[in-house]
């Protein structure tokens, strides 16, 4: 992510790690969360879920800033961010 201005206390403070929960049985593998995640946290899995779709998995949990975009865009209500 491009930062235009660097906060003065960036070294002292850090975001609490966001917890990403994926309800794999609901996923239909459309890939919207993977494609439109601004930090590239998610990736499509090679494994199948119960319906025969490929659900996403969390590849880089530390990169997540908890913006909840995946939670909003998911048409299946299959992914959400825990309370930070």
């Amino acid at each position: 992510m491009k930062m235009w201005r660097k906060p003065l206390d960036l070294d002292e403070k850090s975001l609490p790690p966001a917890e990403i929960y994926i309800i794999e049985s609901r996923c239909k593998g459309c890939g919207l969360c993977v494609e439109f995640c601004p930090r590239g946290v998610l990736k499509m899995s090679d494994e199948f879920n119960r319906k025969g779709y490929h659900p996403p998995f969390v590849e880089e949990p530390s990169a997540c800033v908890g913006c909840h975009f995946c939670e909003e865009v998911c048409p299946e209500f299959a992914i959400f961010i825990g309370d930070q």
Partner: peptide
């Protein structure tokens, strides 16, 4: 590779969904 779904809690939007009709 790390699985994130340790304990899938209820989705926060489930309170307004009729869950029995999902998917």
């Amino acid at each position: 590779k790390q699985k994130a779904s340790k304990k899938p809690d209820r989705h926060p939007k489930d309170e307004l969904l009729r869950e029995d009709r999902m998917p």
